[in-house]
Simulated scan of single mutants.
Amino acid sequence: MATLIIVLWMVSITMLMLSDFSFLNPLLYVFVLIQMHLYTGLFITAHDAMHGTVAPNKPKLNLFFGQTCTLLYALFPFKALYAKHHEHHDFVHSAKDPDYHEGKFIVWYYHFIKQYLSWRQVVLMAIIYNVLKIYLPEKNLLMFWVLPSLLSTLQLFYFGTYLPHKGEHQNIYQSNTQSKNHVWAFFSCYFFGYHYEHHQSPGTPWWKLWQVKEQNSSTNNG
């Protein structure tokens, strides 16, 4: 599954970078959303690697996939993300939780980005951008590299952090969950709207979270 996400992202971004498009073509914006979703898939795959589920019992391969996805996403150092993400699980919805912040959406989003983005990354990404624009049309870089990656951060934050953790929750995981709708759950954020289920079973990869949702729904209905 991790290989599929990486290959789809690579094929998509290569084809889009070489395309000649018009801003009047409505398909352009569909392709931007597809690329955004694939960027989110890269990060979700890296997240699964943080829980050891990409290549179970093969830690070096698991680390390889995690680091590859975080580098492709935005040059994130995998080990630093690993440490912060496990702090989130250990101290969820507390002052020690790097993903949690008491405040409105924009303030929380700013706090969230600040936790993970470093000036080194920004500088390196700027250098890469300026090198690539020598060889590729700048409008393609902006529409299919810069914009989808930025939109992906909003997708990840809104569906994977803000909605699940805002407010107070009467459960040990301090997490909300989307209503059962597997199609919407996949397209919104690779089933991470089923966030209670993720905290309940962090060893379940993203593509099996719907099964945990089904089990919980059957138990509750029973």
Rank of each mutant, 00 (worst) to 15 (best):
Y82L: 05
F78L: 00
W207H: 15
D99L: 03
F23M: 14
Y135I: 15
F31Y: 12
L72G: 00
E102R: 07
F159T: 07
K139C: 04
L18E: 10
S152W: 07
P205C: 14
W206V: 03
V183S: 08
N62K: 04
V212R: 09
K114V: 14
T153A: 08
I128Q: 11
V146I: 12
K79D: 00
F192E: 06
M1S: 07
K104Y: 12
V54E: 04
E102C: 02
A46F: 05
L33S: 08
V131N: 04
L156C: 09
I134V: 06
Y162S: 08
N220E: 12
Y29K: 06
S217H: 14
Q211C: 10
Y116A: 12
F64T: 04
F43I: 10
F112A: 12
M10W: 08
A95G: 00
Y173M: 11
Y116P: 02
G103P: 04
L141Y: 12
H199I: 13
V92Q: 00
I113T: 10
S179V: 08
H111C: 12
Y190R: 05
E214A: 14
S179R: 11
L16K: 07
F112S: 06
V123W: 09
F31A: 11
K133T: 09
M15W: 08
E102T: 03
T177S: 14
L124H: 10
F112R: 10
I134Y: 05
F43D: 01
L38K: 10
W9Y: 13
Y73D: 01
I127W: 06
F157Q: 07
M143V: 10
Y100N: 01
S149N: 09
H165M: 13
D20A: 14
Y129M: 14
M17R: 08
L8R: 07
M36L: 07
L81P: 00
T219E: 15
A74F: 06
L136W: 12
S179I: 05
L27V: 09
G41R: 03
K114D: 11
P148R: 06
T204M: 11
N181R: 07
V146S: 01
G222C: 14
A2Q: 03
F105S: 08
Q115E: 13
F191S: 02
V92M: 00
S19P: 05
L142H: 05
Y109G: 08
Y29E: 12
L28A: 11
V123F: 15
V107M: 09
T177V: 08
Y39L: 03
F31C: 10
Y129T: 06
W207Y: 15
A2K: 03
H111P: 03
T204L: 05
K133H: 06
W210Q: 13
F64E: 04
T14V: 14
Y109Q: 07
F187D: 02
W206E: 08
F64K: 00
V107E: 15
G66L: 06
Y110T: 14
Y158C: 14
F144T: 07
M10N: 02
Q215C: 13
A74C: 05
D99A: 01
Y194M: 06
E168N: 13
T68I: 08
L61D: 00
C69Y: 02
A185K: 00
W206Y: 15
Q178K: 02
T68S: 04
Y196V: 03
S179F: 06
P77I: 00
F191H: 07
F64A: 07
D90S: 01
F21T: 12
N171F: 06
L8D: 02
F159E: 01
L81H: 02
S175A: 14
V32A: 05
Y190K: 03
I6P: 01
